[in-house]
Design a protein around this nucleic acid. Structure first.
Lengths: 202, 202
DNA sequence: TGCGAAGCTGCATTCATTGCAAGTCTGCAC
DNA sequence: GTGCAGACTTGCAATGAATGCAGCTTCGCA
């Protein structure tokens, strides 16, 4: 059973994420201090750092879950599936999850990732760590088809292609302004473009 | 002609890089303060920030030159070369440049990039910026063969594959000790697999 | 009920980073 | 050679993230 302590901690954690989101949105990232966030969540400044290791972390509270989902997607492979097929499916799952990206929170995260260096740096680190983890599991799932380095290269190519495509797409001024549905459409198209070489399409 | 001012500034810049390298090597990154570096280079602490925007920057003093080289490599394409061929050549050039990486400085940079979060974050940002720049130029060089998103995906895949393979490769304990030729061999093999869809090989 | 671990805070400290306001030096025109 | 404008340096002060420490409070469990 979840103990009272756990529930309390979870509640505070959520409060921190919410408070931070709210403040970042209204005041801006640099203009919001950790003390502000802590105060808004009604805890001491010092305590903030017992929930998140740094100010940036609070923007990526679900990074672990994302990776877990990807790993699960790999684990549940169908018989006869090739590494590339598994990877394609995994990326599609992540893409679907990215649809939530249309939510206000995720849009903020996206915006800050693109404008605040510290946040971008953290986002990239998270991506790289995820990449490593996925590669490790993919390799374990296909010990005969892949060696460790090959798995790293393959996963790197998939994620790199996707990220590269999205980067260009989002670099366009006002890319985030239009209709969310349209944006989602374009994101999907960009992913298709990025992955086409593996899907066999011309 | 280069003015006295320019020469002086360059000399100080080099002194800073050297001082920082030396100190990071002996004392460690976190244990070295910006004030230490500035003092070792015989300038005021405040002045450090007129040469490098942050402590991490001093570890990547030639990032711009690297990108310029890559862009040049793209510009000097042979008639009939395909985007993929150009990109392969460009990556090879960068790889050659990375061979100088055997120098003590570059080894240090590599080690710190792998151990100090702040440095890793910065390195990734630099990589991403370079990627964007390369994609832009590649697209301009092949306006008929590539669209912007496609170019982003292509470059992302190549760099992602390289980075992904290197990441795993370097995770192996003692990876840097063995024969460099062997390392290059393994890297090449991994990338061949990952990029096969682009390079055409079955 | 009571003990020990876990969690919360305030305080003081270290450091990166930035704005500001003088100084100082260099490039260049006369 | 002189002198001025602009570019560089630098010290000072302030801000804010992050961390170690020490004392308290609260919760989980026997």
């Amino acid at each position: 059973m979840t103990t009272l302590r756990d529930r309390k901690r979870l509640r505070t954690r959520r409060a921190l994420v919410e408070a931070a989101t709210e403040l970042f949105e209204t005041r801006g990232y640099d203009e919001t201090t950790v003390a502000d966030i802590a105060a808004a969540a009604e805890i001491g400044t010092r305590t903030f750092f017992s929930y998140f290791a740094s100010k940036e972390e609070v923007l990526f509270p679900d990074a672990d879950a994302r990776v877990t989902a990807a790993v699960d997607a790999i684990a549940t492979r169908a018989p006869g599936e090739t590494p590339v097929e598994v990877l394609l499916r995994t990326m599609r799952d992540l893409g679907t999850a990215a649809d939530e990206m249309v939510g206000r929170t995720a849009a903020l995260r996206l915006r800050l990732t693109r404008t605040v260096p510290a946040v971008r740096g953290r986002a990239l680190q998270i991506q790289l760590d995820a990449q490593r983890e996925i590669a490790r599991h993919l390799r374990e799932a296909f010990p005969d088809d892949l060696d460790a380095v090959g798995a790293g290269a393959l996963v790197g190519a998939f994620i790199g292609a996707t990220a590269g495509a999205l980067q260009v797409l989002l670099d366009e001024p006002g890319a985030l302004d239009g209709d969310p549905a349209v944006l989602r459409e374009r994101l999907q198209a960009a992913m298709d473009t990025a992955l086409r070489p593996w899907t066999g399409g011309g």
